[in-house]
């Protein structure tokens, strides 16, 4: 039972250079906490002091923004891909 978490280039210094990390399935919250446990320091980049996901951090599960799902409580199933993507503006 595992899911793949894609690490953005900005955070790879903390993931030992890894672009993808495999973790146990669970919720977005539990997986990101597990990511922090595996790679100390990563959590502080993603969560603010109050424990909420920072407002410029976007998390996608199977290509869908978790704000359209159940937020950090979104359940991630075996084999799904979680992407952490910085907000970008456009036009």
């Amino acid at each position: 039972m595992s899911v793949t978490v894609r690490i953005p280039s900005q955070l790879r210094e903390l993931s030992g250079g890894a672009a993808e990390v495999s973790l146990e399935a669970g919720t977005v919250q539990s997986i990101l906490k597990a990511l922090d446990a595996a790679h100390p320091g990563l959590g502080a980049r993603l969560f603010d002091d109050a424990g909420a996901l920072r407002r410029f951090v976007n998390v996608f599960v199977a290509e869908e923004d978790i704000r359209f799902l159940d937020g950090v409580d979104t359940v991630i199933e075996d084999g799904q891909v979680v992407s952490i993507v910085p907000a970008v503006a456009g036009g």
């Binding site: 955070l11 410029f56 503006a89």
Partner: peptide, 10 residues
């Protein structure tokens, strides 16, 4: 670069 490494801010 476009994103803060510390907080993902622009």
């Amino acid at each position: 670069i476009y994103t803060c490494e510390w907080c993902f801010g622009p």
